[in-house]
């Protein structure tokens, strides 16, 4: 049984004074436990909407989502979400932002400290717990966002263009860290990105989506052996990487 299965998922947004906009049209997808899936596609292809529906932030017009065979009807602590931007509450420190998720999960304050310390260390932010978001760089803020999602120990992590607003260098550093992190933990991960490089680097399979209406165009397996994290920068020079990147790039160009 797949960890996550999406069946015939359709999402229509009402448009004032016109026909409704179809963001997702009959999306089917199965994700195995421990798999890393990246979603790519031109803007308007519905990849973020799909992720938000799986998280329960939005409801589908029709269709079904199951986790471990059980239908999903709303948000749950079994899924940890990382937002693209504005993902932290600016009036809470890094540790308090993580505490927010723990408190929401029902973990009492006196038992939050240890977890908070641990996940901050995991993302390389040991000792930064008492900083407010505006005292942290964009990359550090996203690490806090990832730490917060890890803190609730979800079975599935959903990341919505987490590195989209970062500069190229920070972005690549975080991609490599993400690779190390996911290969160590083996969690099921859904990762939306607009970067083909990022998708090929990180994913086991890349889901290519096309816009208007949002549909899955193709699912491309990335057979670069793991662990890839140890390759570091050399990963991007392997023939497999170059070939897949090229293949995906051409597919995307056809869609634009």
């Amino acid at each position: 049984m797949p960890k996550l299965s999406v069946r015939n998922l359709t999402k229509r947004f009402p448009v004032s004074g016109g026909p409704s906009m179809t963001a997702l049209d009959g999306v089917d997808l199965d994700v195995e436990e421990g798999e890393f899936i990246a979603f790519v596609g031109p803007s308007g292809c519905g990849k973020t909407t799909l992720l938000r529906i799986i998280q329960g932030l939005e409801t589908a017009t029709s269709g079904e989502i199951r986790i471990d065979g059980k239908p999903v009807t709303g948000p749950g602590h079994d899924r940890g979400f990382v937002f693209q931007q504005y993902g932290l509450l600016p009036w809470l420190t890094a540790a308090q932002n993580i505490g927010f998720a723990l408190e929401a999960k029902g973990i009492p304050p006196n038992r939050q400290g240890e977890t908070t310390e641990r996940v901050l260390a995991t993302v390389g932010l040991k000792g930064f717990g008492d900083r407010f978001p505006h005292q942290l760089s964009g990359g550090m803020q996203q690490r806090v966002g990832i730490a917060r999602a890890l803190a609730i120990e979800p079975e599935i992590m959903l990341l919505d263009e987490p590195f989209g607003a970062l500069d190229a260098l920070t972005r690549e550093i975080l991609q490599n860290e993400m690779l190390g992190l996911t290969e160590r933990m083996g969690k099921t991960i859904l990762f939306v990105t607009h970067s083909v490089d990022e998708a090929v680097c990180l994913a086991d399979r890349v889901v290519v989506m096309s816009p208007r209406p949002g549909r899955i165009r193709e699912i491309v397996p990335i057979d670069i052996p793991r662990p890839r994290a140890s390759l570091g920068e050399a990963l991007r020079d392997t023939p497999e990487y170059v070939a897949k990147r090229h293949q995906l790039w051409n597919q995307l160009m056809d869609l634009v």
Binding site: H77, F100, A101, A104, K105
Partner: peptide
């Protein structure tokens, strides 16, 4: 959305 995603009361 943060509150919703993490199921805050």
């Amino acid at each position: 959305d943060i509150g919703k995603a993490f199921m805050a009361s």
